[in-house]
Design a binder for these strands. Structure first.
Lengths: 152, 152
DNA sequence: CTTGATTAGTATGATATCGAACTATATTAG
DNA sequence: CTAATATAGTTCGATATCATACTAATCAAG
């Protein structure tokens, strides 16, 4: 396949991803401040993933989606389980594997956390910013989807 | 100041930041794979910051910009100094403080790293994706700038 | 000046993450 | 069926990051 004029301007695309990185850094800080003590944004992200794509997934699939190693997932799932946000059961179809399920408490937690961070965001952004965010959403989805389907 | 109809739709803005987060996650993974062993994306980010905004900054200012604590910065600067990418000197104007300077080696490193990650990105994105990225850049800059100037 | 409060940086102990090695189960070749 | 290989998850040792506490230097009040 032909290669979009390689090296055309390596800096410019890099700079855009850099902007995305900074936005994410700032937004994550807002999220972190909205979460209760001991709950890391990465933990929240796991719960969020289970709600969006459905639970009953194996730890290794979740790890792949989150781009973390399986031992990191082992650790994170323990934290979530100790808080009663998820349940980890043996996989009936695979003696090696496990399956992760959200609990009612985990779902409540997610909703409350999103409300909390939503309030912070409301205080932070203007109508203009909100409009810009909505405007770029389709492109972001396309970019996310493509990168997600073409990982290295 | 009036507040953009609070709670209008907390989920929708949250979902967009979520997309940004995933894009960043995937892009960071590409960057991490392009960096030499032992150099963390956060280390690269510090060098990048020093190039973009100029060096001779205090560790604490860099920590603020990167949204990490000052002890994290102490640690990261030691890694970068041990590799010869930066120099940390006493601040002549403040007996407590230090100043961080890029070395020639640090600048070379940044350029090579950007080239390396640029090649990976070239292989990963299509002309359509590149177009989308360029298209959303102005909005991203506006969003980043606003969030940066209105941190909690 | 001197004292109290603030600030820059470091030290210490904790959690999050990673890579490599290990265990147990599944799958495949023959 | 058995042996070799692959996969799911855990364990272990290392780095990155954080919160708290500490040291040293600056600044502000008087």
């Amino acid at each position: 396949m032909t290669q979009n004029e390689p090296g055309e301007d390596p800096m410019s695309v890099f700079a855009i991803f850099n902007e995305i990185g900074i936005v994410n850094q700032l937004a994550t800080a807002v999220l972190a401040a909205s979460l209760p003590e001991g709950v890391h944004p990465s933990h929240f992200s796991i719960i969020n993933h289970l709600v969006r794509l459905g639970d009953g997934k194996t730890p290794i699939r979740i790890a792949g989606a989150m781009q973390v190693t399986k031992n990191t997932m082992t650790h994170s799932l323990r934290v979530l389980e100790s808080r009663g946000f998820i349940e980890v059961r043996a996989n009936p179809d695979d003696g090696r594997g496990k399956l992760v399920f959200l609990t009612a408490r985990g779902q409540e937690f997610r909703e409350q956390a999103i409300m909390a961070v939503g309030r912070q965001i409301d205080q932070l952004i203007t109508p203009d910013l909100r409009e810009r965010l909505v405007r770029i959403k389709p492109d972001l989805v396309a970019i996310r989807s493509h990168l997600d389907n073409n990982r290295l």
